[in-house]
Each structure stands twice: as C-alpha cells, then as structure tokens.
Design a binder for these strands. Sequence first.
DNA 1: ATTAATATGTGAAATTAGTAACAAATTAAT
DNA 2: ATTAATTTGTTACTAATTTCACATATTAAT
Lengths: 207, 207
Amino acid sequence: MNNLVQIKRLQRYRMALLRLKNMGLKKTFSHSLSEETGVSPVLIRKDFSQFGIRGKRRGGYDIDSLLDELKLLFGREKEQNVVLVGLGNIGAALVKYEGYRQSNMNMVAVFDIDPVKRTRRYSVPVYSLESLREVVNAFDVSVAILAVPEFSAQETAHYLVENGISGILNFAPVLLKLPGHVLVNNINIMIELERLMYHIGVRTKPI
Amino acid sequence: MNNLVQIKRLQRYRMALLRLKNMGLKKTFSHSLSEETGVSPVLIRKDFSQFGIRGKRRGGYDIDSLLDELKLLFGREKEQNVVLVGLGNIGAALVKYEGYRQSNMNMVAVFDIDPVKRTRRYSVPVYSLESLREVVNAFDVSVAILAVPEFSAQETAHYLVENGISGILNFAPVLLKLPGHVLVNNINIMIELERLMYHIGVRTKPI
DNA sequence: ATTAATATGTGAAATTAGTAACAAATTAAT
DNA sequence: ATTAATTTGTTACTAATTTCACATATTAAT
Ligand SMILES: NC(=O)c1ccc[n+]([C@@H]2O[C@H](COP(=O)([O-])OP(=O)(O)OC[C@H]3O[C@@H](n4cnc5c(N)ncnc54)[C@H](O)[C@@H]3O)[C@@H](O)[C@H]2O)c1
Ligand SMILES: NC(=O)c1ccc[n+]([C@@H]2O[C@H](COP(=O)([O-])OP(=O)(O)OC[C@H]3O[C@@H](n4cnc5c(N)ncnc54)[C@H](O)[C@@H]3O)[C@@H](O)[C@H]2O)c1
C-alpha cells in the first residue's frame, strides 16, 4: 500500500500534530488525530504501524516522539532552498509568504522575464532567467515554484529542468511534459472551485 | 465507482479538451487525451462510457460533442457567483485573477475585517463581513474562497456557513469543522511543496 | 468486395486502499 | 491484587479502482 495516498496522510498527521503541540498538548490518540485530520482512527494506527511508529496501548502516542519520527520523513535535516519563477499575482503572494521556515524551507531567489517586475524590492532578490543556473548551483536548489502564464509554462518548465531543477510546483493549468526523472505537483485553483460548484450543484439539483 | 476520483479526471479531460479545441483540433482519441492528461487511455474510455459519452470505433471522439456533454456536468448553465474572504497575499492574487469567466464564474465581492484593506480599489468591491448575508442573498452565492490566517479560519468559516455559504475553497492549513452539509476543498501549498521535497529526497537518497 | 488496420467499449482479473473484528497491552478503579 | 476500561496493533475481510484482454465497430487500402 506504500506511498502516495499514505504519504499525503502522514503529512496531514504532521500538520495536525504541530497544531496540537502548539496548543500545549503532550500526547494524543488515534481518535483525537482523527478529529483533526478527518482520517479514521484505524487507518491512522495502521499508517503509523507501517512506518514503524509505535504508540502505547491505552497510553496513546507521544506527540514529540511522533513528530520526531515524521521529521525523519519530511523535515529533511538541512534546510531546503527553493526558487520562484514568475512574479505575477500568485508569485507576489508566494514571495511575501512567511511560512517557509516552518517547513524548513527557504526561498532564495525569484525569476521573471519582465524587467519591470525585477525592480520591485522584496526580501528575496529578483533575477532574470539567465541567472538561474548560477543560483541553482550556488544554493543547491532542486525545487522550483512555477507561477507563469499558461502559454509559457511548458517552455519555462523545460528550461528549469535543463538548468538542474528536478521538482516543480506548478500553478499553470497544463500538464507539463518533462523527462521522467522530474517530479511535478500541480495546484489548480479553478479546478478546485469548479469541483466545489459541481458537487454543490449535484446535491441541490431537484430530483 | 462513481464520483470523486472520477469527477477529478473528467475535469482534467475537460481542461485538456478546451486546450485542444483552442489549437483548432476537431476530434481526438483516448490515447491523445492520455498524453494531455496523464490518464491511461482505457481509463479515459471507461470514464466516458460510464457517463454515457460515446465515441466512434476507429473514429475517436468529437471534441465539441465531448465538451457539450461535459458542460452538462460542470459548466452549470447559469454563471455562478463566488465571494472571496480575506484580502491578504493570496486574496490579492485571487481578486486580480481574470480566469473566472472562462469557468463561467464571477467574483462578486471581497470581505476583509481590516478597514485598510477595504480602501484598496479593485474591479470587485471590498466590504466588511457585516455585509456578507446581504451579498449572499442578492447574488445567490453559495461558494466562498477563504484566504484568512490560520488562526481565524475556523471561526470565519463558521460565520460564512451561518450566513448561507455551503461550499468553501480553503487556503488555510487547518481542517475546518463544519456541519455535514457544507463542502470544503482544501488547497495547501506548503504540503504540496513538502511532498515534492519528500519524493525527491527519497529518490536521491543514497542506497 | 475483401482484407487489414485502428479505436472503442466492456466484463474479468488484478491491484490497491480501507474497514471490521478482535487479541494484547496498559492503565485506572475498586 | 483483581477487575474493568481503554487504546493500540494486526489479520482477515470488503470495497474501490485500475489494468488486461478481447470482441466489436469503423475506416482505409488493395
Ligand atoms: N492569480 C490567480 O489567482 C490564479 C488562479 C488560478 C490559476 N492561476 C495560474 O497561475 C499562473 C500565474 O498566474 P498569475 O495570475 O500570477 O499570472 P500573471 O500574469 O499575473 O503573472 C505571470 C508572471 O510570469 C512572468 N513570466 C511570463 N513568462 C515568463 C517566463 N518565461 N519566465 C519567467 N517569468 C515569466 C510575467 O512577467 C508575470 O510576472 C497562471 O498560469 C495562471 O493560469 C492563477
Ligand atoms: N501567501 C501564501 O503564499 C500562502 C501559502 C500557503 C498558505 N497560505 C495560507 O493562506 C491563508 C492566507 O494567507 P495570506 O498570506 O494571504 O495571509 P495574509 O495575512 O496576507 O492575509 C489574510 C487577510 O485576511 C484578513 N482577515 C483576517 N481575519 C479575517 C476575518 N476573520 N475575516 C475576514 N478577513 C480576515 C486580513 O485582514 C488579511 O487581509 C493563510 O491561512 C495562510 O496560511 C498562504
């Protein structure tokens, strides 16, 4: 059963555990985590079990230990550097976001073809794409956030990969065609909205 | 097998078909759509088949007919109005986005508690939350985009529901606890980034 | 006309994911 | 100490999703 679906759930557990810890809690139970994540208690226990994470019968799970175990999975030891490509609407939101540290990540540079965009001053430097390779090498970057218009997404993604990027978080609503070793995660806001509409529409449609 | 997973795929087909149509194509085949969407050809055929959409053996599918059929599913007849709650980083990107029309949607109002945010002028009016019910009634709104900070997300979501919202696209990294009839779709940017890191890390880790 | 090639459509098989049931451990209560 | 209550961990079962295999239709070529 390993992977994908399960990894997504482990991430959710981790987020929830961070919240619980923040609230001052020391331990938790599969049914409490279920409340926080929407995953059934059995499945939570099974997931933990399969990743070698063990609780105490009747005593539940120790939050700190759980987070330590999950840290080995997600919170890579070394802080991971990412770059942002495309400083438009979405890009501007992402560059101003301050939550990267919390996930042990750091945005080291932004790239945009528009020189005007490069005059705006943020806490992160904005370059032309020519500097990409240099930055990738200097900061050991392997992941990029891609927030360029749909029509240039494929071409830009290709350029990123040519210059050493092997993971892309893609906001453009297209399937990027890239070499097999490259990983892409897509975020498609309009599709999420549409599906919401669809499900609501379906349910409220008169029978 | 109906629903959820399948609906997601049908949405992807639709997006891809719109692109193909835009490129001037008239018909397509399950294997071409597979290229565009990453879904296997058999599964594409099966999905269509189960939704009563039929192609021509040897002749493939007619793009316009396909889109018509899918329109019945997704592109509700009437344009759907949505509101945005929280005009921060993400909110500002969403209010400036111009792709709603294409999905037959329309953003009719933005809400923010911060009076300073309400002085900024966009093509969409910005109100305080007190006006929510009024707008919901006037524009028959059932879906809201929630882009407020994590700590106020639950409370705000609750308020939205109290005032007639039944679908929420949630950007805050928390599981919203709401009455069963309310639908929530979550977009969690950091989780997507983390998972990218994880999968890359796993693969490049020395054996 | 006949044959070959190509694509769809679908029931069966295989795979993957999730649930139920319950034993084992641990803690709390008497 | 003994009993009861609770919660984990696991195996067996059920459900869901996807792929396989192939029959069937359609077009193109000879
Ligand atoms: N803004 C939203 O709310 C929203 C919603 C849904 C989807 N999207 C998608 O997200 C992507 C970005 O949207 P946006 O609204 O931020 O777009 P935008 O047009 O505001 O910004 C795009 C930016 O990318 C830059 N750019 C263009 N080509 C480039 C290239 N080759 N290399 C580097 N930079 C380049 C442009 O100069 C611009 O600054 C689009 O694909 C869009 O479809 C956005
Ligand atoms: N910006 C990003 O790139 C990013 C990335 C990942 C996740 N997120 C999440 O998205 C959400 C929004 O992020 P952001 O960066 O835009 O935050 P932000 O702080 O920039 O903006 C939040 C906005 O919500 C308004 N607000 C606060 N409470 C409100 C309430 N009760 N009702 C109405 N409006 C209210 C604030 O006035 C502000 O304008 C957060 O939950 C954040 O964790 C954002």
